[in-house]
Design a protein around this nucleic acid. Structure first.
Length: 584
DNA sequence: GTACCTTTGAAGACG
DNA sequence: CGTCTTCAAAGGTAC
C-alpha cells in the first residue's frame, strides 16, 4: 500500500506515470483529438457497438437502456444497471440523502459465493433479476433499526424483496458474502429462518440492513443476509462476487468476535445459516470461518482464474489444502471498482479482453472524482476489516505462491503495440469519448484525489469541486512501457488525480455506477456505524490539508490517509488543477 | 489446460 | 524505513 512516505517520491511518481503515459500519450492524444468533449460512454455506446461486434445491443441497448427487463443476458443486466445508475445519479451527491430510489426496478442478484474462497463460485450464469427498489438508501439511518415488521410504508416493505433464494441474494447483499460453497443455488437453506421470509411474498427475504439492529448486531437467527453495499454491483458481473457457493452455505462463523459494526458487515455477507451454524470449526480445528473443506475449496473450474489454482497440486497437496483453504485477498478499492464497471466497459467497448478492459478501467479510475473513489476506498477498507474479522489468522502471505509468478518484471520493455494494439482497434475509437482527455493528468493517479476520508468524501455532497480533471484522460489501451513500475514504487501509484480540474459531475459513466455505490456504501456505513455520513462535510475538493485529513479520517490506516498525504505532496509539487503529464 | 496480459491497491518480504 | 514482490478480478489470447 502506498506509504505515507510519499514525501520523497512524489516527483518520481509523477515521472513514472509520465513515462508510462508517454507511450500512451501518443495514441491517446490522437484519440483526444477526435473527441473534444467529454461524453458519456452511454452516448457513445451505440457507436461503439456498431463498431465492433455490433452485438445485438446496439439497438437493443438503446431501447433497453432505460427499461431493464428481467432478462438474464448480460446486456439487459447492464441496461438495468444503467437505469439504476441513472436513478442514483440523480440523487447523487448525497449518500445519505436517503431519497427514495424510485427506480431501480430490477436488480440482478448474484449467486452467493464467498468471494474470498476460491471455490465459492457458482455458475456465473446464475443471476437473477428481481424487481426491487433501492433498499438501503431510502432508509433513514434510524429507520434502519426498525424491525422488518415495523410499520413501513408498503412500498418500502418490498424494498428489499429480495431474496433469499438459494442463489438469490439481496442486491445489497454482500459485496462479499463470506459464504462457503455450501449453498446450492437452487436450494435455499433449510434453516433459513422464517424471519427472513417476506411475509407477503413468502419469499425469503433479506432483512433490510436497516432492519437489523443498530448496525445489525449479529444475532443468530435474526441475522439475515444483509445486502452488501456493493452487492448489486457485483451482481452485474455475472460473477457473483459474493454468492453462495454451490454447496450451500454451511459454515457459520460463530466464533467470530465482532463488534456491532462488524456484525453488520458480516451479517450482510453471510447467509443466516452461516451465522447460525455452530460448528464452524475447520477440520484443522481452527475455528476460523474461512476454513473450507477441501472439496469446497475447489474452485469451480471455469469460474476463477486458473492461475490462482493452477498451483495447487491435485493430489498430494490435499492435506495442505485442507489445512489452508485458499482465502482470497480482500479486494481493494480498484478491484471493487473493476468489478462494478467491467461489465459496463465491456458493453461499451465490446472489448472482451480483460487486459484491455482493465486499462480502460484504470483510466476511469483515475478519472473518478475523489468522492467516487472515496466510496470505493471506504468499501475496500470495510472489506478488509471484515475480512480480517472473518479470517483473523489470515495473512496475505498465505496466498503467496498460490499463483504462478509472473514474468512481466523481466520482460523486455513491452511495446505498446501488442496487446494494446489489438485492444485499440476495438476501443480506440470510442475511448476518447469515454473520457475526454484533456490531460494525462490522470496518470498521477486517483489516489491523490482519493478522498482524504472516505467518510468525508461521502459526507460531502457532490463536493464543491468534484473535479473531474481526469475525465479528460484518454482511454487508450496502450500498455505502459513500464508496466508494473508503479508496483515498485508505491508512491507512484498514487495517481493522484489532479485535484481538480474540471469538474464535474462525476464523470459520466463512472459516476453513474459509483453513485449507486455510494448509495450502497452509505448504507453500509450506516450499518456499520461508521460516521462517514457525519464526517466532515467539508471535504476537500481539492487541496487537502494534510492535517485536516487526519482529523477527518475515520481510520488511520485507510488509504485515504495515504491519498491525502500524496495529494498533499502533489499539491505542493504540482499544479493540481491542470495536471498534464506530470512534468517535473 | 494454463500462463499471460492489464489495471490499482494492499500487504508481505527483503535489504 | 524504503523498495520490491505477490496477489486480488477477469477473460481473451497465446502457448
Amino acid at each position: 500500500m502506498p506509504q505515507l512516505n510519499g514525501g520523497g517520491g512524489d516527483d518520481l511518481g509523477a515521472n513514472d506515470e509520465m513515462i508510462s503515459f508517454k507511450d500512451e500519450g501518443e495514441q491517446e492524444e490522437k484519440i483526444s483529438e477526435n473527441v473534444s468533449a467529454e461524453r458519456d460512454l452511454d452516448d457513445v455506446k451505440s457507436s461503439l457497438v456498431n463498431e465492433s461486434e455490433n452485438n445485438s445491443s446496439s439497438s437493443d441497448s438503446e431501447q433497453a437502456e432505460r427499461r431493464p427487463q428481467p432478462r438474464r443476458d448480460l446486456d439487459s443486466y447492464e441496461k438495468a444497471r444503467d437505469y439504476f445508475s441513472e436513478a442514483l445519479r440523480r440523487q447523487d451527491g448525497g449518500l445519505f440523502k436517503s431519497p427514495p430510489y424510485p427506480g431501480y426496478p430490477f436488480l440482478m442478484i448474484p449467486d452467493l459465493t464467498n468471494p474470498y474462497l476460491s471455490n465459492g463460485a457458482l455458475s456465473p450464469s446464475a443471476r437473477t433479476y428481481l424487481p426491487m427498489k433501492w433498499p438501503l438508501l431510502d432508509v433513514p439511518g434510524t429507520a434502519a433499526l426498525k424491525d422488518s415488521r415495523s410499520p413501513t410504508p408498503g412500498h418500502l416493505s418490498n424494498k428489499v424483496p429480495v431474496v433469499q433464494h438459494g442463489h438469490h441474494v439481496h442486491p445489497l447483499t454482500p459485496l462479499i458474502t463470506y459464504s462457503n460453497d455450501h449453498f446450492p443455488p437452487g436450494t435455499p437453506p433449510s434453516h433459513l429462518s422464517p424471519e427472513i421470509l417476506d411475509p407477503k411474498t413468502g419469499i425469503p427475504r433479506t432483512p433490510h440492513p436497516s432492519e437489523l439492529s443498530p448496525y445489525y448486531p449479529l444475532s443468530p437467527g435474526a441475522v439475515g443476509q444483509i445486502a452488501h453495499p456493493l452487492g448489486w454491483l457485483v451482481s452485474q458481473q455475472g460473477q457473483p462476487m459474493y454468492s453462495i457457493p454451490p454447496g450451500g452455505f454451511r459454515h457459520p462463523y460463530p466464533a467470530l468476535a465482532m463488534n456491532a459494526s462488524m456484525s453488520s458487515l458480516v451479517s450482510s455477507r453471510f447467509s443466516p445459516h452461516m451465522v447460525h451454524h455452530p460448528h464452524s470449526l475447520h477440520q484443522t480445528g481452527i475455528p476460523h470461518p474461512a476454513i473450507v473443506s477441501p472439496a469446497i475449496k475447489q474452485e469451480p473450474s471455469g469460474d476463477h482464474s486458473p492461475a490462482s489454482h493452477s498451483r495447487k497440486s491435485p493430489g498430494p497437496m490435499k492435506k495442505e489444502e485442507d489445512k489452508k483453504p485458499h482465502i482470497k485477498k480482500p479486494l481493494n478499492a480498484f478491484m471493487l471498482y473493476m468489478k462494478e464497471m467491467r461489465a459496463k466497459v465491456v458493453a461499451e467497448c465490446t472489448l472482451k479482453e480483460s487486459a484491455a478492459i482493465n486499462q480502460i478501467l484504470g483510466r476511469r479510475w483515475h478519472s473518478l472524482s475523489r468522492e467516487e473513489q472515496a466510496k470505493y476506498y471506504e468499501l475496500a477498507r470495510k472489506e478488509r476489516q471484515l475480512h480480517s474479522q472473518l479470517y483473523p489468522g489470515w495473512s496475505a502471505r498465505d496466498n503467496y505462491g498460490k499463483r504462478k509468478k509472473r514474468k512481466r518484471d523481466n520482460k523486455p520493455e513491452p511495446k505498446p503495440e501488442d496487446f494494446s494494439a489489438r485492444s485499440k482497434k476495438q476501443c480506440v475509437q470510442y475511448l476518447p469519448q469515454e473520457k475526454t482527455i484533456d490531460s494525462p493528468a490522470s496518470s498521477h493517479g486517483s489516489m491523490l484525489d482519493s478522498p482524504a476520508t472516505p467518510s468525508a468524501a461521502l459526507a460531502s455532497p457532490a463536493a464543491p469541486a468534484p473535479t473531474h480533471s481526469e475525465q479528460a484522460q484518454p482511454l487508450s489501451l496502450t500498455t505502459k512501457p513500464e508496466g508494473r513500475s508503479h508496483h515498485h514504487h508505491p508512491h507512484f501509484s498514487l495517481p493522484g488525480k489532479p485535484p481538480s480540474s474540471s469538474s464535474t459531475s462525476s464523470s459520466s459513466s463512472p459516476s453513474s455506477s459509483s453513485s449507486s455505490i455510494s448509495a450502497s456504501h452509505a448504507a453500509l456505513s450506516l450499518a456499520i456505524g461508521t460516521s462517514s455520513s457525519q464526517s466532515t462535510p467539508h471535504i476537500l475538493s481539492r487541496p487537502i490539508p494534510f492535517t485536516s485529513l487526519h482529523h477527518s479520517l475515520l481510520s488511520p490506516p485507510s488509504p485515504f490517509h495515504q491519498a491525502a498525504l500524496h495529494s498533499h505532496h502533489l499539491l505542493q509539487t504540482q499544479p493540481l488543477s491542470l495536471v498534464t503529464k506530470s512534468t517535473e
